[in-house]
């Protein structure tokens, strides 16, 4: 049986792992190489590394850091931040990334998804979507959540699927950093409308929230950052808890 995945996310800025509250007020959470290796050993099912400043600063993802993290990892590794064309991806794969995640560039030019899929295959392409509720409607935001767009979340998610993306990483900016739980209703709607895997992100505070994301939200994976980085929830402890709740967990 396919297992639900627990994914620690390393938001990296200037070579350090950071985590913001509602995407601002970033604080330092440690060395990403050290954290990545620790999570793999503890039973994380996958690791995501996002260069959160890459788009804003026009910077490319720091490949050396990707390499250092990958060397110590025997689990899948997704890298994102600042990918805007096909040429950006091959160097990341050669540095040790298994998948890449695109966000702003895909919103700006959706054909990018088709191009990436054609060159690298669906399974390699994760589309990250940041959204927030505005006047009762989920609207997609770009550039680390700083720029609102006119795209509606669910129709954009469907388009992303049709263009061949292998997976969606959905972050609710309304929930991110609040520790009040994932956006389970939005996750549920997305899961019902799409047939590609969905990673829930934003809002994890306690272990019950992961259970809710998998049961109510029907997510395939759940991602969190600060609660793992600051050792508030241990991955082995979380996985044991979910097993007891009869969630399929490795």
């Amino acid at each position: 049986m396919l297992k639900k995945r627990i994914i620690p996310c390393l938001d990296v800025k200037n070579g350090r792992t950071v985590k913001g509250i509602n995407f601002v007020n970033i604080r330092d959470a440690g060395d990403p190489v050290e954290l990545g290796a620790l999570y793999a050993e503890q039973g994380a099912d996958e690791l995501v590394f996002l260069d959160i400043t890459a788009t804003n600063d026009g910077r490319k993802t720091f490949k050396e850091l990707v390499k250092d993290i990958a060397k110590h990892l025997n689990i899948p590794f997704t890298v994102g931040g600042g990918i805007s064309n096909v040429e950006d991806v091959a160097p990341l794969l050669y540095a040790g990334a298994d998948k890449v995640s695109v966000n702003s560039a895909a919103v700006r030019r959706p054909e990018l998804i088709d191009e990436l899929v054609q060159e690298f295959g669906s399974q390699c392409i994760v589309v990250a979507i940041d959204a927030r509720m505005v006047d009762g409607q989920w609207l997609v935001h770009t550039h680390g959540g700083s720029k609102p767009t006119e795209k509606e979340l669910f129709s954009w998610a469907e388009e992303v699927e049709q263009r061949g993306a292998g997976e969606i990483l959905f972050t609710s900016m309304d929930h991110d950093g609040t520790r009040q739980g994932f956006a389970v209703e939005a996750l549920k709607e997305m899961s019902e409308r799409l047939s590609i895997p969905i990673i829930a992100s934003g809002g994890a505070g306690v272990m019950e929230h992961f259970n809710d994301a998998f049961t109510v939200g029907q997510a395939d994976a759940a991602l969190a950052a600060s609660i793992f980085h600051f050792k508030e929830i241990g991955i082995p402890e979380l996985k044991n808890y979910l097993k007891q709740k009869n969630i399929a967990i490795r």
């Binding site: 396919l2 297992k3 995945r5 590609i196 490795r250």
Partner: peptide
């Protein structure tokens, strides 16, 4: 061929 509740790609840990 995707079935309800079984998504494609098959992505993750399986036995």
């Amino acid at each position: 061929r995707s079935k309800k509740g079984e998504k494609v790609p098959h992505m993750g840990w399986n036995n």
